[in-house]
């Protein structure tokens, strides 16, 4: 279990994360949802170990890891821009971390991951030859062969569109379930958060507005902010679709 207690972080006098506490169970998918400046990326960086906190504690499976550095925590991330190395082909990107830590995955496990993410036919391609969805899968494979204790995904679907987006969404869910991997997703899209996660953490100005399962957020929004800024977006989307095609949604 990942446990954060009384986390505080400010930049140049501005509080970005304000007394935040939360727990994430092992194998759970949690989305951090919020508008720009709500503190969601800062929280992601704090969990990853990239950003130091001003006060509070972070525990992983009961052990205090607040002072443990990013590399030692054993968590890993897929960044929004994937950060694939353009000088290496797909296969070399996937195996990059194994050059440093061979013991992390066996050859069979690597091959399994390549097949699971449907990357076999792309192994010799250069990164520039890949589509957005393929890049996303390569970045996922590269991270997963390192068997992270927690998988962090920074806006994983924002650069994708349409069918590819749905495809990747399902693929991520499948993998996470198969590997029982604790996963934290940062997103600004309520639809993404509510459809992908076991729990959704909604941030508003560095504080938790609501942390609950998706159905609870839909049916029992904690306050006006959730209703106005989160659920309203979904209603507008739904209304637009119905008005276009003349249906009713009462």
């Amino acid at each position: 279990m990942l446990k954060l207690t009384d986390i505080k972080k400010s930049f140049h006098g501005t509080t970005v994360i304000d007394n935040l506490s939360l727990s994430i169970e092992k194998g759970e998918i949690v989305s951090i949802l919020g508008s720009s400046g709500s503190g969601k990326t800062t929280l992601l960086n704090i969990i990853l170990g990239m950003t130091d906190i001003d006060s509070g504690s972070i525990y992983w499976e009961g052990e205090n890891i607040t002072q443990v550095g990013m590399k030692q925590r054993g968590f890993n991330i897929v960044f929004q821009d994937y950060a694939l190395f353009p000088n290496l082909n797909v296969e070399k990107n996937i195996r990059y971390g194994l050059r440093n830590k061979k013991e992390m995955s066996t050859e069979e496990e690597v091959q399994e991951m390549i097949d699971l993410l449907d990357l076999r036919k792309h192994l010799n391609k250069s990164i520039s030859q890949l589509s957005g969805g393929q890049k996303q899968r390569v970045a996922l494979a590269r991270t997963l062969v390192m068997k992270p204790k927690i998988l962090l995904l920074d806006e994983p679907l924002s650069a994708l569109d349409g069918v590819i987006k749905e495809n990747i969404k399902n693929r991520i869910k499948e993998i996470v379930e198969q590997f029982q991997l604790t996963t934290i997703i940062v997103t600004h899209d309520p639809e993404e958060a509510l459809t992908m996660s076991d729990k959704v953490l909604i941030l508003n100005q560095g504080k938790i507005a609501q942390y609950a399962a998706p159905h609870e957020i839909i049916h029992e929004p904690a306050d006006n902010f959730i209703e106005e800024f989160i659920l309203r977006q979904l209603t507008i989307k739904k209304d637009n679709i119905f008005s276009l095609f003349g249906g009713s949604h009462a």
Binding site: M50, M70, K71, I77, F79, A83, G97, N100, M146
Partner: peptide, 9 residues
Amino acid sequence: FEKTAALLG
């Protein structure tokens, strides 16, 4: 790049 590579060891 640097952060990703660091996380990969």
